[in-house]
Design a protein around this nucleic acid. Structure first.
Length: 483
RNA sequence: GACCCCAUCGUCCAGUGGCCUAGGACGGCGCCCUUUCACGGCGCAAACACGGGUUCGACUCCCGUUGGGGUCACCA
């Protein structure tokens, strides 16, 4: 490591979307910067005008914010820097590291097709490399459009990658690629190098799908006399079918996971488990913990398949470890959105919400589960589960329920202990197993056969509500076709 | 096809020459706990791709094969 302060960046191309691969790369850059006390920057790669639509940029920043990836300094927009790139392109041309190429696109395409047909590498054949000054001047005089290509010198470019060690490629395998289009605008690789240089980027952490770009970019660094940063080509995140995740293949935007009830810290945590490892058996981490232990040496070289099941499992853990109060704040809007209750109702009954959330959190995997599991805590018009009715709501049970409801009604302190004692006492008197009472009561007050510990649930629902619901169940059982 | 990268359970990760009869997690299966559903606990099945070397000794080092992935635009 040099003495320089670490400066890294995430450089998304505006696609209106962020997939887990980009999110993970952003997270790695963020952790790297925070761990080494450096800066984490954002640069929007919109040299292509089509990609300058704010509607394509905003969702990316939104996803970054959701994950808590707060960046330092101003966001750099490449669209604002087009003249700068062109200037550097001209410099490369003037310094003799590049040359004008007058080949029309159709000709180049034809070359590529032929190479393909002959199973050769489709590289530019340097047709315009050795044009004489007269030839160049005459074409220029004719107003012929031209691109600027960089001339790849002989040699065997190599660099030390933080993930894979030394990487090499022969110069012959790198074509004289275009650095400036015929309209004078710079292409991707030039813009990236110029920006990384001018932004003072010390470490380029990106997906290993960029390795071929890195070899090209090193040529530009050299042509421009820039210092070459350190590179870390992290493994890709693959789909279950082993292709790299992409919008085109329909992979989810990270924000879709928020809609599916994934906590941002869970996504953050899980993504760190792919392509990086703390080298021990721990898997649950908070962001501060990750910042603390994140080391570049712990990158992993092989690609990883994204496993949504494991994400959900990690999500569950993060949910469980939140306080009831924190969870209540997160769940409240979801309940309102689902129409189960209103904001006002919840605001005046925060303790109730907190108790409900606390009762349910052990059986929740995604935040939405709170909604699907808690309906009866907020609504009285729930239906009884048909299968459970057949099993629990028999006529004999109506008498038991009625008796128990009356005793509950007269219960002095409606606590877990008292409620349990009352139920047990009745069971004993009637000579039935406690379960004979427990199950019908649960069905009566919640409508479903599964849920939290019965006594705790009854206490949270409150005495009058429980009594009312039990009477209603008795009426239901006794009504024609009720059982 | 060319070039580059990668290679331990189905998946993610540990293992850095002997501690490995290969460890953890998710998922699967079974048992226990239990009023239900979960949680939790215990246990089981499950992998070093293959072939050569190097070495007293290879999951660990080297080479090759195979397999997988990525990149091959006047897109980024």
């Amino acid at each position: 490591m040099t003495q320089r302060q670490v400066r890294v960046r995430i450089a998304p191309s505006p696609t209106g979307y962020v997939h887990v691969g980009t999110a993970r790369t952003a997270i790695f850059n963020y952790l790297y910067a925070r761990h080494y006390g450096g800066k984490f920057l954002v640069r929007i790669e919109n040299t292509d005008r089509k990609r300058s639509d704010p509607a394509l940029i905003e969702p990316i920043l939104e996803a970054m914010k959701w994950l808590g990836l707060n960046w330092d300094e101003e966001i750099v927009y490449q669209a604002d820097r087009l003249e700068t790139y062109s200037r550097y392109a001209q410099q490369i041309l003037a310094d003799g590291h590049g040359y004008r190429c007058f080949c029309p696109p159709e000709l180049l395409q034809k070359d590529r097709d032929e190479a393909q047909a002959q199973k050769r590498t489709p590289h530019y054949n340097r047709r315009c490399l050795n044009l004489s000054q007269e030839q160049i001047d005459s074409r220029l005089a004719d107003g012929k459009p031209y691109t600027i290509r960089i001339r790849i010198p002989e040699g065997e470019p190599r660099f030390d990658d933080l993930v894979s060690g030394e990487l090499t490629r022969r110069s012959e395998d790198i074509e004289d690629f275009i650095i400036a289009r015929s309209d004078g605008s710079a292409t991707y690789n030039l813009a990236v190098v110029v920006d990384d240089h001018e932004m003072g980027i010390t470490d380029v952490i990106r997906g290993n799908d960029h390795i071929t770009n890195t070899f090209k970019q090193i040529q530009i660094y050299r042509a421009l006399g820039f210092e070459i940063p350190r590179f870390a080509h992290v493994p890709l995140i693959l789909r279950p079918d082993k292709k790299k995740v992409s919008k085109r293949l329909g992979d989810k935007d990270v924000m879709a996971y928020r809609e599916e009830g994934i906590l941002p810290e869970a996504m953050f945590n899980y993504l760190c488990l792919l392509g990086w490892s703390s080298k021990d058996d721990r898997e649950f981490y908070t962001v501060p913990e990750l910042i603390d232990i994140f080391k570049a040496e712990n990158f992993n070289p092989s690609n990883a398949i994204f496993d949504e099941e494991k994400l959900v499992a990690i999500n569950r853990e993060h949910i469980v470890r939140k306080t009831d109060h924190e969870l209540a704040a997160i769940v409240a809007p979801l309940l309102v959105e689902a129409g189960l209750t209103s904001r006002y109702w919840l605001e005046t009954r925060w303790d109730y919400l907190r108790a409900v959330v606390g009762l349910l959190k052990e059986r929740v995997r995604r935040l939405q589960d709170f909604v699907t599991l808690s309906g009866y805590f907020f609504a009285f018009d729930y239906r009884y589960d048909a299968k459970a009715v057949a099993k629990q709501f028999t006529v004999e049970k109506a008498d038991l329920l009625e008796e128990l409801a009356d005793r509950f009604e007269g219960q002095a302190g409606f606590t877990h202990q008292n409620v349990e004692a009352t139920l047990s006492a009745l069971a004993e008197e009637k000579g039935v197993k406690r379960a004979e009472l427990i199950h019908p009561v649960r069905l009566a007050v919640s409508g479903i056969p599964a849920g939290p510990s019965l006594y705790e649930m009854l206490v949270v629902l409150s005495q009058p509500v429980v009594v009312e619901r039990m009477h209603r169940a008795v009426d239901y059982i006794r009504s024609p076709g009720g059982s």
